[in-house]
Amino acid sequence: MSSEEPTRLAWFKSSHSGNEGGECLEAAVTPGAIHIRDSKAPARARLSFPAVEWSAFVRYATRS
């Protein structure tokens, strides 16, 4: 993703993240994509995933 975003992303942390300054990720959702960044270094590199791939990852990660 370029440093100049065409639209401003609405970043959020998981409801499981506390405010103790731990290591957290933030996510932003856009049509068709999920964007991930480090909450401690928001200006650094970000990852973007197609929504279909992110959904597959979440299903895999939450399997018991």
Results as ranks from 00 to 15, higher is better:
1 M>W: 05
2 S>L: 14
3 S>R: 12
4 E>D: 10
4 E>V: 08
5 E>L: 04
6 P>S: 12
6 P>F: 03
6 P>H: 07
8 R>G: 06
8 R>I: 07
9 L>F: 05
9 L>C: 06
11 W>Y: 06
13 K>S: 05
14 S>Y: 00
14 S>M: 02
15 S>E: 07
17 S>E: 05
17 S>T: 06
17 S>A: 03
18 G>H: 01
18 G>E: 03
18 G>S: 09
19 N>P: 09
19 N>D: 10
19 N>Q: 07
19 N>L: 02
20 E>M: 01
21 G>D: 06
22 G>D: 02
22 G>H: 01
22 G>E: 02
22 G>W: 00
22 G>R: 01
23 E>T: 08
23 E>R: 04
23 E>S: 09
23 E>V: 04
24 C>S: 04
24 C>K: 02
24 C>R: 02
25 L>H: 01
25 L>F: 00
26 E>M: 06
27 A>H: 00
29 V>I: 12
30 T>D: 13
31 P>C: 09
31 P>I: 08
31 P>N: 15
31 P>Q: 14
32 G>I: 10
32 G>A: 10
32 G>T: 10
32 G>Y: 05
33 A>K: 06
33 A>S: 11
33 A>Q: 11
34 I>S: 08
34 I>N: 08
34 I>W: 10
34 I>D: 10
35 H>E: 13
35 H>L: 13
35 H>D: 12
38 D>M: 04
38 D>Q: 06
38 D>N: 05
39 S>N: 11
39 S>W: 09
40 K>V: 00
40 K>Q: 06
40 K>R: 10
41 A>I: 03
42 P>F: 02
42 P>M: 04
42 P>D: 13
43 A>M: 09
43 A>Y: 13
43 A>R: 12
43 A>K: 12
44 R>V: 03
44 R>Q: 08
45 A>D: 08
45 A>F: 02
47 L>H: 07
47 L>K: 03
47 L>E: 05
49 F>A: 14
50 P>L: 14
50 P>W: 15
50 P>G: 07
50 P>K: 14
51 A>M: 01
51 A>F: 00
52 V>H: 13
53 E>C: 14
53 E>D: 13
53 E>I: 14
53 E>W: 08
54 W>H: 07
54 W>F: 09
55 S>D: 12
57 F>C: 15
57 F>L: 14
58 V>G: 11
58 V>H: 04
58 V>N: 06
58 V>C: 11
58 V>W: 00
59 R>M: 13
59 R>I: 15
59 R>V: 15
60 Y>V: 15
61 A>I: 12
62 T>V: 12
62 T>K: 15
64 S>Q: 13
